[in-house]
Every structure is written in structure tokens, then in C-alpha cells.
């Protein structure tokens, strides 16, 4: 699925919070159709990286390009840039006062000024595909966590973004709902969507990633294909990180 067209270019990005560096000299290219999974211990800067990409955080040094256009620290035009960058958060972030359909249509109607009928037809089509068409008139509080996250994905998708960012979208879900959300993401990957995914689901990361980025303390410590990363990590830090997860799963399996 990879091509050489660069969707996103991050060059020497530096991000600080109150003079504390959180991301140091991050450089990263993301190509069209590529699925990049960002892994790393808690607090290493994964969420911050995604938030810098879609301009929720400004950056101190470096630059971010989308299709070759500079998008970092562009306060005035950031809302236009964000129409091309879909983002789904960890917490269920649907708008509670709107129906499922209105949630999805808000961006297309108000940001992109698309015709309601045309956007609604597409939204309904997308809802059918994730099996939630009957819920189009429901309010978010009437949905399960997994359903909410699937709607949040569709809401981002309906904007036709050039790249989708996912920040631990299954982390707050009950275990039995994780699968349905991951399946939607796998489907998107199969269709060739460009995605940057932060996740703690290692099996999933291995299955979906074209490339793994391993972050530690704000640095890219390792960058490799999924098989290589999981079977034969180059750095000590990555080995440690993966071991912790192996230990966790053994611990839960046997000690309870």
C-alpha cells in the first residue's frame, strides 16, 4: 500500500511545556496509505505528538508539513488544516446534545459547507458499514463505549481527511468492546487510509502497522517494521518495554 507521496512531514520538532522538553528533535515522514503505530511508555509524549500534528499544541522548534504545506504554528488557518486531519481521542468525545447523525454532520456542514443531503447520504452509508445505521437518531448517552468510538471514527472519516490520528481509542473501553473498534480501524487500513495510531494493544499494533515508531522520553528510539520490532527489537529500551508487557500478560493469566 505504500507509495512515495509524503502526506505528513515532521522535521526536527521540539515541544516544551513550561520549559520542560517533552519532544526532542522528532523527524518523521508519513507516506500516503501508510499506517504508523507509535508505541512507548506512559508520559513519553505520544499524545503530545498527535496534538502537535493537528495544532492543538504549538511547537517550539522545527516544522510540520501536510502535503508539502507548512501547518505548524499557523494559528489563523489551523481550522482549515484540521479539516484534512481526522482525530479520535481516548475519552468518548461525541457531542452529547446531538444525535449520532448530527454529530457526524456538524463538520461537513459547518466547516466544509457541504450540502446537507449529500453529506447525510454519505454519513448514513458510513453508519451502515459500521453496523450503526439504526442508531443514527440516538443520542450518545444511549450508546455503549464501543459504539461511541466507532461513531467518533466515522465523524472524522466523513470529512475525507488526508490522515487520521488515533490516540488510544480503546484504552477506556471494556475489554469486550475493544475488538469492534479495532476491526473498524483494520478495515480502514485495508482500504488504504493513512493513519497514525497510538495504542497499548500490542497484538493489534503488530497486525496493523506498516511501521512502528518507538518513543521514549520524547525521542524516537527505534523505528522499524512490526515483525522486526516485536521479534527482534534493536534497542535495550524497546526490549525492556516489550518485556514489561509480556510480564503483564503472564501475571494476569496465572496469578488470579
Amino acid at each position: 500500500m505504500e507509495s512515495t507521496e509524503k502526506i505528513l512531514e515532521i522535521k526536527h520538532l521540539k515541544k516544551e511545556f513550561d520549559n520542560t522538553p517533552v519532544l526532542n528533535d522528532i523527524s518523521l515522514d508519513i507516506h500516503k496509505g501508510e499506517v504508523v503505530v507509535v508505541l512507548g511508555p506512559s508520559g513519553c509524549g505520544k499524545s503530545t505528538l498527535l496534538r502537535c500534528i493537528n495544532g492543538l499544541e504549538g511547537i517550539q522548534e522545527g516544522e510540520i508539513l501536510l502535503n508539502g504545506d507548512l501547518i505548524s504554528n499557523q494559528k489563523k488557518s489551523m481550522h482549515l488544516v484540521r479539516q484534512h486531519i481526522g482525530m479520535v481521542f481516548q475519552s468518548y468525545d461525541l457531542f452529547p446534545h446531538m444525535t449520532v447523525l448530527d454529530n457526524i454532520l456538524l463538520g461537513p456542514k459547518k466547516a466544509q459547507k457541504r450540502k446537507k443531503e449529500e453529506a447525510a447520504a454519505e454519513a448514513e452509508e458510513l453508519l451502515k458499514r459500521i453496523g450503526l445505521y439504526e442508531k443514527k437518531k440516538a443520542y450518545p448517552r444511549q450508546l455503549s463505549g464501543g459504539q461511541k468510538q466507532r461513531v467518533a471514527i466515522v465523524r472524522a472519516l466523513c470529512m475525507h481527511p488526508k490522515v487520521m490520528l488515533f490516540d488510544e481509542v480503546t484504552a477506556a473501553l471494556d475489554p469486550e468492546m475493544v475488538r469492534e473498534v479495532l476491526d473498524v480501524m483494520l478495515e480502514l487500513a485495508r482500504e488504504g487510509s493513512t493513519m497514525v495510531i497510538v495504542t497499548h494493544e500490542m497484538q493489534f499494533a503488530r497486525a496493523i502497522a506498516d511501521r512502528i515508531i518507538f518513543l521514549d522520553e520524547g525521542n524516537i528510539v527505534e523505528e522499524s517494521g512490526p515483525e522486526e520490532f516485536f521479534t527482534n527489537p534493536k534497542t535495550e529500551r524497546a526490549k525492556q518495554f516489550l518485556n514489561i508487557f509480556d510480564f503483564d500478560s503472564v501475571h494476569h493469566g496465572s496469578n488470579k
Partner: peptide, 23 residues
Amino acid sequence: IQKESGLSIGLTNLQVFRYIILP
């Protein structure tokens, strides 16, 4: 988070206020 999800679908600050925060 409500504000940020509004922003991330490309709404302006004013639109976020008008359609998401205020209601």
C-alpha cells in the same frame, strides 16, 4: 475535550462556541 473535538473537525473557535459549548 469537547472543545478540542470540535476544533479537530475543522470548526473555528466561534463555531465551536456556537454549536458545541453554548448549547
